[in-house]
Simulated assay, not measured.
Amino acid sequence: MGAFLDKPKTEKHNAHGEGNGLRYGLSSMQGWRVEMEDAHTATVGLPHGLDDWSFFAVYDGHAGSRVANYASKHLLGHIITHSMCPPGPEGVTPTPAPAVETVKMGIRTGFLKIDEHMRNFSDLRNGMDRSGSTAVAVLLSPEHLYFINCGDSRAVLYRNAHVCFSTTDHKPCNPQEKERIQNAGGSVMIQRVNGSLAVSRALGDYDYKCVDGKGATEQLVSPEPEVFEIERALEDEFVVLACDGIWDVMTNEELCEFVKSRLEVSHDLEKVCNQVLDTCLHKGSRDNMSVVLVCLPNCPKVSEEAVKKDTELDTFLESRVEEIIEKAGEEGIPDLVTVMRHLSSESIPNLPPGGGLASKNYKPHVQCIGHAHEANTNPIMCLHWARPRGQY
């Protein structure tokens, strides 16, 4: 289940890029976990003549980072190599873009092959490394979006101002997953495989893949992904890929509405992704967190009105916090929990949808409310990690 730190590590890894008519940003953060076990892939333009294709993925490792890190570097290669678009003889013109069913079969084969390949690594084979990883991805061709999921990370598509698609989490208690687990001689207890593993599909996790007489997709834990193909549309706005550290505290709709609201006040996709992580941290997420945001041509644009409202909101919150501090008087400067309790009881207009007050609860350069007050900076943006865990 993982151990926790005394205070979260909030340093972030960021990246961004563009091409093929899209822009992307990503952010990952260790958070409260003792180790960072997430990984990601972001590739615009694929080999073998697929220059106008792109691939993005998030991998949520558990019991170690080996499988997640390896998959982030090599899964795409396995997908391409194994029947999606096999290279022809040297010097021969690449074959035309593959058909939909060929792509879907190549994705499935790529997952099974990389899982088989990693099993031959000595530390994974002899049990010295028991790590595993979920994988959620989107493969974009000029005509289609291929959503790929193995585990409980999740991808969503925001189209025409609403969530029009979401992958399904692979949990042991799902009827289809539970049936496979029981057929392999296992059980589901406390919503976990044999009372231990919280996901029913994953790469790695070879302790759960050693039932004699059962194929790779019939084991307690299956490496087989679900693949969903959706035709692209002019109304497509953005795709979000994220690990369960995000989805533990935000619904599909909340996250997409929050992302939309942030895109209306900033062009900076790294900044938007950072705000997602910080907001989830303050909503109570205790896990590693990773998010990839892929913006398509019809994504929300920065709005002067939205920027104005957001600025006015920051100014209002600053003034309210200063009032709360001044009213405290001789009782001393209140801690963040007290301030947030006051603000939460008020009706504050124009808070970011999906993020709410939690999305206005951070600012790296301010250390605590007292220092903020003395420095005449924005007190609501402070964060003091000395308070008891769970009080956000």
Results as ranks from 00 to 15, higher is better:
241 L>M: 05
241 L>N: 08
241 L>I: 05
242 A>H: 03
242 A>Q: 05
243 C>D: 06
243 C>H: 08
244 D>P: 07
244 D>L: 03
245 G>I: 03
245 G>S: 06
247 W>I: 04
247 W>V: 03
248 D>C: 01
248 D>Y: 00
248 D>M: 02
249 V>Y: 03
249 V>P: 05
249 V>H: 07
250 M>Q: 11
250 M>K: 04
250 M>E: 07
250 M>T: 06
252 N>M: 04
252 N>K: 08
252 N>V: 01
253 E>N: 11
253 E>S: 13
254 E>D: 14
256 C>E: 05
256 C>F: 08
257 E>G: 11
257 E>C: 13
258 F>K: 05
258 F>G: 07
258 F>R: 02
260 K>T: 14
260 K>R: 15
261 S>V: 06
261 S>A: 15
262 R>Q: 15
262 R>Y: 09
263 L>M: 13
263 L>K: 03
263 L>P: 09
264 E>G: 03
265 V>D: 05
265 V>W: 08
265 V>Y: 06
267 H>P: 13
267 H>L: 10
267 H>E: 15
268 D>H: 07
268 D>S: 02
269 L>Y: 10
269 L>S: 06
269 L>Q: 03
269 L>W: 04
269 L>F: 09
271 K>A: 09
271 K>H: 13
272 V>Q: 04
273 C>H: 00
273 C>N: 05
273 C>Q: 00
274 N>F: 00
274 N>A: 11
275 Q>T: 06
275 Q>E: 10
276 V>I: 12
278 D>W: 11
279 T>C: 09
280 C>W: 02
281 L>G: 01
283 K>P: 00
284 G>I: 08
284 G>M: 04
284 G>L: 07
285 S>A: 12
285 S>G: 06
286 R>L: 13
286 R>M: 15
289 M>D: 08
289 M>T: 04
289 M>S: 12
289 M>W: 06
289 M>G: 09
290 S>I: 02
290 S>F: 00
291 V>D: 03
295 C>A: 15
296 L>W: 07
296 L>H: 09
297 P>W: 05
297 P>G: 10
297 P>Y: 03
298 N>R: 14
299 C>I: 06
301 K>T: 14
303 S>I: 07
304 E>V: 11
304 E>Y: 05
304 E>F: 12
304 E>N: 14
305 E>G: 05
305 E>K: 15
306 A>C: 11
306 A>Q: 08
307 V>L: 13
307 V>N: 09
308 K>T: 14
308 K>F: 14
310 D>S: 12
310 D>K: 03
311 T>M: 14
311 T>V: 12
312 E>V: 02
313 L>A: 03
313 L>V: 05
314 D>T: 11
315 T>R: 13
315 T>S: 14
316 F>C: 12
317 L>Q: 02
318 E>H: 11
319 S>N: 12
319 S>E: 15
319 S>R: 15
319 S>H: 13
320 R>P: 01
321 V>K: 00
321 V>Q: 01
321 V>C: 13
322 E>N: 15
323 E>P: 01
323 E>K: 13
323 E>C: 10
